[in-house]
Design a protein around this nucleic acid. Structure first.
Lengths: 196, 196
DNA sequence: GTCTATAAGCGGATAGAC
DNA sequence: GTCTATCCGCTTATAGAC
């Protein structure tokens, strides 16, 4: 394994354990069993490492999303559920990032810019899925503003469900993740054609 | 103004501007125009200050909630809307706390314990409001799990709407806060008796 | 690419005078 | 209650040898 990747792996692990603020570049170097100087050969600073982690997340996330919609066509309830669970497992893997999402995005200009792109794309995908649902008569026709609010509601739940569980002192496991899915279904359900 | 309160005020302001990690006790002391030593006379450390801020939030929040439900009986749509907007304005005032909610709650045992109480109480209030809505036939009868999921959905939106706006690069103003209200209405609307 | 050594600075925290 | 002075430890970051 390349040193650069080893650094990223150890950083993810430590950040998930203790949060980015409590983890120094020295800690990361020690965990990766390299010298502090070596770490600075590969990265300019901690921010740079965090940004590299974000890029990894972004690339892997896109490819995972692709494999879900290859298996379950967009706009079906199956694809919705599998996408949601995929996102949650993903968020868990990089959980420090979602926990500190707002400060990280706000205080790092580069990250802000890049996250904004991903964020916008994701909302467009949700909108696209809803449109497909309407076209295939899974979802009832919606006026524009209701559709916008549903996109917001669904993306909000997907982004923050993990945080919601953690601040509530709940375990993150299959049960609680599935409950997130049920919450999503409670929101979307009344807008489905065959809900009752 | 008492020194202790001056420290708390300056700390809130600085934390909101730069986040808790970037603000040292020295910065707070300088902003409050007192010596670093004096700060340590009033608080054991930074964590202690954050906890004091949480207590202030908690006390003021409870009293504000009281004045809302004194004006608008629990279970009406007016009370829901006013409560939501009140919470958002409140979250904005202590916005650093909501931005860093998960790390703060997870890494501070004392805060974890206290937040858990508030969190549980709030969910009970939402449930109480829904029950009142059902009793007064504003809300259709709900089975137990749907009710649970609605409580989760509504509290999730109330807790994280500000974060949702900020990570999306949106301004926090009357417009976007009202949009949060609309999202809530899109979620709850189909469960109302007179929605359409 | 990787190491050792180290500079420079900051943050947390305390002692002791007033 | 408030100040000044100060100590320790840690973190970031770089220089230079291998």
């Amino acid at each position: 394994m390349k040193t650069r990747d080893k650094i990223i792996d150890c950083a993810i692990h430590l950040f998930n354990e203790k949060g980015t603020a409590a983890v120094s570049t020295n800690h990361i170097a020690a965990a990766a069993k390299i010298s502090p100087g070596n770490l600075y050969y590969h990265f300019r600073n901690k921010e740079d490492i965090i940004f590299a982690i974000f890029e990894q997340m972004d690339v892997r996330g896109t490819s995972q999303y692709q494999s879900v919609i290859d298996s379950y066509p967009s706009g079906t309830m199956e694809s919705l559920e599998h996408t949601f669970l995929m996102i949650q497992k993903f968020n868990w893997r990089y959980r420090f990032f979602k926990r500190e999402l707002t400060p990280l995005v706000m205080n790092t200009p580069l990250l802000k810019e890049r996250f904004h792109i991903t964020n916008t794309q994701t909302k467009e995908m949700i909108r696209f899925a809803i449109d497909n649902g309407i076209a295939s008569e899974t979802i009832k026709p919606l006026d524009a503003s209701t559709k916008n609010h549903l996109v917001d509601a669904m993306w909000l739940v997907a982004l923050f469900w993990l945080n919601y569980l953690e601040v509530g002192g709940e375990e993150v496991d299959d049960n609680t993740l599935r409950r997130g899915n049920s919450v999503l279904h409670t929101i979307l359900g009344p807008y489905l054609t065959n809900n009752f």
